[in-house]
Write a protein that binds this DNA or RNA. Structure first.
Length: 459
RNA sequence: GGCCCGGUGGCAGAGUGGUCAUGCAGGGGCCUGCAAAGCCCUGUACGUCGGUUCGAUUCCGGCCCGGGCCUCCA
């Protein structure tokens, strides 16, 4: 099956045709580093991590760029509020972000460019836009002239008049057109600023992505991703800048993930209904959070609840239970790509379908009779899992390290199990059941099998 | 107000013009000393009203409901 994606630009599914089949290049909007990332911030990271894993298996070389926004007025405000330097705030937050995303099983992108390290490129692009008549200087600001670009609005599917009609914000008096947006703005002495041809100032929000994408991926490149809420104005403006600076098409394929919701409402800091990834990592393994983010198709809204988290934990338990008895079976390092999982992901990253395939593979493994069938089934399950960034943990460790902290240490558990085995050997089932009940009350479930008694923590 | 998206069985959540999602929960069986796990079987689901069709949950239109964007936002 051909790799297919729903393109926001055309609002239909299209077969993916890389500009260079030897080297696929894509860009995803990352995070503004002023606060701990919440679960909503994590969704694009996990979703596009699956995309990255898929592309790496399909193409010889993939460059994945995810930016770090460390110039932003919210950062300035937060640093002032905290009484710490901007550098300290962004450094600390970036480290937390990277740690949290790694805990969710996200691979490190090829490049994580920072805005502060690309101001020169942004100034250069701004100069180009002025030279080409797409930007102008007004009241110390450099503004992009939206009317200078006839195609403006193609991504969000709105025309300029509609935008102006629906505008809910006062238009800055220095704008020639209400839709114009800032490329560069002046900085007062108490705000970070960089020297520029227009005096000391700082870049507008959108220009960083245009400049960093160009630097690390060239122009044009294959695919651009981000949250649905970035379509307008961020991505629209990014397109305008890049297209006008180059007088050439920018990106043909745009992917946008749906929002994470709580109580059917978008999770966002401004609404105050956020759960941070860090908070959730205290309640559930990162892999459980990751799976939860993959249970719905990436373009659908995802209602995030503790209940959905425990559902995901149950699913992972099922997979790891299937794998547990086969620890000794050696599978190839180069895991196979199960056809069903691959086909599901090639169809616009249909992760729910891919998970259904994983369930079928787990059933296959549970039913496998011969040694050869077991090896094959185990490799398939792990291979499918790796494409989704799942099932890399040691099954025994996963099952014994459940969500709740039992009062019993592993040694104590084993001692009780040994005692129970002895009782069973003596056919003292009353004693054996008493021990089992005691373990169960401590959150330990035991299973008697042909290879002896195994246990796991439930919760 | 403008632009966009969605409403699937108890829950989560894919998908399809006419036999199946999948998982959890529920019911029955096999296995087990009993369990647990596993395996097998098990569900009159597709917001509503019309239209197209031999046939619609799936296509089209109206309506109702929910969400997103239009301002920072993943």
């Amino acid at each position: 099956m051909a790799l297919t994606f729903y393109n926001t630009l055309t609002r239909q599914k299209e077969v993916f045709q890389p500009l260079d089949a030897a080297h696929v290049r894509f860009y995803v909007c990352g995070s503004t580093v002023y606060d701990l990332p919440h679960v909503g911030n994590a969704r694009p990271v996990v979703v596009f991590d699956v995309l990255y894993r898929l592309l790496r298996r399909l193409y010889p070389r993939v460059t994945y760029v995810r930016n770090v926004t460390d110039i932003d007025d919210k950062i300035n405000a937060r640093a002032k509020e905290n009484g710490e330097s901007i550098r300290d705030l962004t450094e600390r937050t970036l480290l937390a972000y990277q740690a949290d995303m790694a805990a969710l099983g996200a691979l490190t992108p090829t490049v994580e460019p920072r805005a502060t390290e690309h101001v020169a490129e942004m100034i250069a692009m701004t100069l180009t836009l002025i030279a080409k008549g797409h930007a102008y200087l007004a009241d110390g600001h450099v503004l992009f002239s939206v009317p200078s670009m006839p195609d403006y609005g193609a991504l969000s599917g709105r025309n300029r008049d509609e935008m102006i009609a629906g505008a809910r914000v006062d238009v800055a008096p220095y704008k020639r057109d209400p839709a114009d947006f800032v490329l560069w703005k002046p900085s007062g002495a108490d705000i970070p600023g960089w020297e520029s041809p227009w005096g000391r100032g700082r870049p507008g929000w959108h220009i960083e992505c245009s400049a960093m994408a160009e630097k690390h991926l060239g122009h044009p490149f294959d695919l651009h991703g981000g949250g649905l809420d970035l379509i307008f104005p961020h991505h629209e403006n990014e397109i305008a800048q890049s297209v006008c600076a180059h007088q050439a098409p920018f990106v043909g394929l745009w992917l946008h993930n749906g929002m994470v919701e709580m109580n059917d409402e978008k999770m966002s800091k401004s609404l105050g209904n956020v759960l941070t990834v860090r908070e959730m990592l205290g309640e559930a393994p990162g892999e459980t959070i990751r799976l939860t983010l993959l249970t719905a198709h990436y373009r659908q809204p995802l209602n995030f609840t503790r209940d959905s988290l425990s559902q995901s934990k149950q699913v992972l338990d099922r997979f790891y239970r299937a794998l547990r008895p086969h620890r000794a079976l050696v599978v190839p390092d180069d895991l196979p790509l199960p056809a069903g999982v691959l086909a599901a992901l090639e169809d616009d990253l249909n992760t729910p379908q891919a998970l259904a395939e994983l369930h079928a593979l787990a059933t296959d493994l549970n039913k496998a009779a011969s040694e050869g069938a077991k090896v094959e089934a185990k490799a398939a399950l792990l291979g499918g899992g790796s494409l989704l960034g799942l099932l890399a943990a040691d099954p025994e460790a996963w099952l014994r390290g459940g969500a709740t902290t039992s009062g019993l240490a592993d040694g104590e558990i084993q001692a009780l199990i040994d005692a129970r085995i002895e009782a069973r050997g003596a056919r003292d089932f009353q004693e054996a059941d008493r021990i089992r009940d005691r373990l169960r009350r401590q959150g330990i479930e035991i299973e008697d099998g042909p290879k002896g008694t195994q246990w796991r923590r439930v919760g």
